[in-house]
């Protein structure tokens, strides 16, 4: 019986690279979204809410809930469950609003 998702599908991924969350290195596999890379590292929250300051991360997993918003390379309000991780990406915990308004 498989012990990991990668084992289940017989994954032979390309070599991992590094992204950072608030400066802390996190490995990512090419083809993973930012949220998937963070989940892999056991990180489930990368945002705090505007009113209660509560921690949040990915919830719907498919781009509909906007709970996974992160600041990626200084651009706020990006949906981490949709954005593919790229080598060297700097993710920062987003507090409250971030900055720019969402256009969609």
């Amino acid at each position: 019986m498989a012990r990991t998702p990668a084992e289940l599908v017989g994954a032979q991924p390309e070599p991992p690279f590094e992204i950072t969350l608030d400066g802390r290195p996190v490995p990512a596999l090419p083809g993973q979204t930012v949220a998937a890379a963070l989940w892999s590292a056991g990180i489930l929250a990368w945002r705090t809410t505007r009113v209660g300051g509560r921690p949040r991360g990915a919830f719907c997993g498919i781009g509909q809930c906007y709970d996974c918003l992160a600041t990626i390379n200084a651009v706020p309000n990006r949906r981490a469950c949709l954005v593919p991780a790229r080598p060297g990406d700097a993710i920062t915990t987003q507090e409250g609003h971030g900055r720019a308004e969402l256009s969609v």
Binding site: A6, Q32, T33, A36, W39, R54, G61
Partner: peptide, 23 residues
């Protein structure tokens, strides 16, 4: 239900299928 680690059931499935990850 807003605690980190509480995720949509379909969302967990989607993250698993596309990113090979578990919550």
């Amino acid at each position: 239900w807003t605690l980190p680690g509480v995720v949509g059931a379909g969302g967990a499935q989607a993250m698993l299928k596309s990113g090979l990850v578990l919550p």
